[in-house]
Design a protein around this nucleic acid. Sequence first.
DNA 1: GAATACCCGATTAATATAGTCAAGTATTAC
DNA 2: GTAATACTTGACTATATTAATCGGGTATTC
Lengths: 159, 159
Amino acid sequence: MKLTTKGRYAVTAMLDLSLNSDNGPVSLLEISDRQSISLSYLEQLFSKLRRQGLVKSMRGPGGGYSLSRAPEEIAISSIIMAVDENLDVTNCGNATSGCNEDNKRCLTHNLWMDLSNRIQSFLDDISLQDMMDKSDVIEVAARQNSKQKGTRINLPDSL
Amino acid sequence: MKLTTKGRYAVTAMLDLSLNSDNGPVSLLEISDRQSISLSYLEQLFSKLRRQGLVKSMRGPGGGYSLSRAPEEIAISSIIMAVDENLDVTNCGNATSGCNEDNKRCLTHNLWMDLSNRIQSFLDDISLQDMMDKSDVIEVAARQNSKQKGTRINLPDSL
DNA sequence: GAATACCCGATTAATATAGTCAAGTATTAC
DNA sequence: GTAATACTTGACTATATTAATCGGGTATTC
């Protein structure tokens, strides 16, 4: 489990998507505008999110992305892991052989794996819905929405 | 709160230090050998750890580093934060002004700060001692120790 | 005073992050 | 069916961070 800006971007984008998905699919261009994340970077992120089954894509005019399941069902951890492909946080490449065996250095491997697992299970318990429910989210989103033309709730970046 | 390999190195080194501090100060050279972390990189890390008051240094022959307080009193979070100087995980530079105000994008700022805080308080509750107490740590350390000449318990890297 | 080991700054190499560019393909609307 | 929309993909580039290296220090012990 890594916590990087990349993961933050992904969580931000997914939150934006979730908050704005009342009127059908959301295009990456919209998210790019609202969150000030470059379109191409979003494309990279959503390519991974789609392959991990977190979002569905619809092509053509009016197309875009939508959540593939309810926000209650999407854990923050799954978003972060989807874009942080590099899953092995260990130096030994998570090698099950030659690591615990033959005197290879593996003590902190276990330690870190354990810590990593605990952080992950912590993030497993926080869903997209949980984050949407936070009062300050609703406040800020509403305030920003009132200042804009569209009917959709807007989600700022700075994630 | 960021989780990077840098922080992992620091936690590894601190664990090694903690496990081997029975016979006085531990030199970085020892840690370097046991953990396969370059000496100069350790110097960089311990420079920060020392400035943050987590370790004490003693110069001269027989010198080295020692924990500045009991391992029960050292939270994993404090180690990671000591070496990850870059504390603001927000894009707006954690600006208290101009962020919540004037339509600057700051919703996910709050969200991420909250998430970051929750992760941090989670890591606040895990001490160096907690990690030392783990059974697999003791097992591996003992096994490795039995295969080496020195009397000290050895801690492998791959953190 | 020689050996040890911390201390510090500058430099470099490797990797990851973030963004760009360009050429696609599928779908919708007309 | 054609044009516009919008996703899809891959290659490429710039920047930042990470990790390591080097070369000189200073303090301390023996």
